[in-house]
């Protein structure tokens, strides 16, 4: 089904609001979903996969279990990155400003690729920030790396198969965020490392082209997902009545 980006954003926001996301969080979560879709990384499909889980979950606790200046370890109580995970990135940026380097490791968190859109927002605010997360099977780990540089509009995203002799375990519920005041402190991601097989790379230019296409043409959303999202969104609509229709809207002689 063809929808505009504005429609998709609005429907995601209101659906997440219906699911109990707090004000501010439902906007951010929706923006992260739409960003991924707008930039060609399947945000809508991923949302469709996790929607039943989001509908069932209570809002998970997000706690700091260790803090040491620029280094913070956080635990999410089996939640999605959409459940306020953007605050972990905000915390990394805050610590980077205070100490030069801010590292946050967030455990217990799923759906981590949604963080890409929030990295772009951090960069817009003037932060250098990178995110690392691992997907795949044990011993067949795939490393996902996204780097957003301050004031750049868009990040760069790479996926590597880091076989390294088949020893690496896939840590599939941790997101590592690293923010810095200094561009030079971010790792240079080489595509030619001998132990790394570059599976995918999306440059800022490619993201820009995808984004422009989405603004021009809208996006295609699975009809079932659209129906489900709309149904969740509509849970916050108030059933109408004659009193609501007349007094609530202030109608008088509408047809003269």
């Amino acid at each position: 089904m063809h929808v505009s980006l504005n429609e998709f954003t609005s429907t995601c926001r209101r659906a997440l609001d219906s699911l109990g996301f707090p004000p501010g969080e439902y906007e951010d979560a929706a923006e992260m979903v739409v960003w991924l879709e707008q930039h060609g990384l399947g945000g809508a499909r991923l949302l469709g996969e996790i929607l039943p889980r989001l509908a069932d979950n209570r809002w998970p606790a997000l706690t700091v279990t260790h803090t040491d200046g620029g280094c913070v370890i956080m635990q999410m109580d089996e939640g999605s990155i959409l459940h306020g995970g953007s605050l972990a990135a905000d915390l990394a940026c805050t610590r980077a400003l205070a100490t030069g380097l801010g590292i946050v490791r967030l455990h217990g968190c799923s759906d981590r690729s949604f963080i890409l859109g929030y990295l772009a927002r951090c960069a817009r605010r003037g932060h250098h920030i990178a995110a690392f997360w691992c997907t795949g099977e044990p011993r067949r780990a795939i490393q996902n790396v996204a780097v957003a540089l301050a004031d750049a509009k868009l990040p760069v995203f790479r996926r590597f198969r880091a076989d390294g002799g088949g020893e690496q375990e896939a840590d599939t519920d941790t997101l590592t965020l690293m923010a810095t005041r200094d561009f030079a402190m971010l790792p240079a991601a080489s595509a030619e490392h001998v132990d790394m097989e570059l599976l995918e790379m999306v440059t800022a230019e490619e993201f820009e082209a995808r984004s422009r296409r989405a603004w021009d043409q809208g996006v295609e959303i699975d009809a079932t997902l659209w129906r489900d999202l709309s149904a969740i969104r509509d849970q916050r609509l108030v059933p109408t009545s004659d009193a609501s229709r007349h007094r609530g809207a202030g109608e008088t002689n509408p047809a003269d």
Binding site: P22, P23, G24, E25, E27, D28, W59, L62, V64, G84, L87, D90, L91, T94
Partner: peptide, 13 residues
């Protein structure tokens, strides 16, 4: 951010 981690409902305002 430390306040919002404890009280996310105030993020929007």
């Amino acid at each position: 951010v430390e306040f919002l981690l404890a009280y996310p409902r105030f993020k929007a305002i």
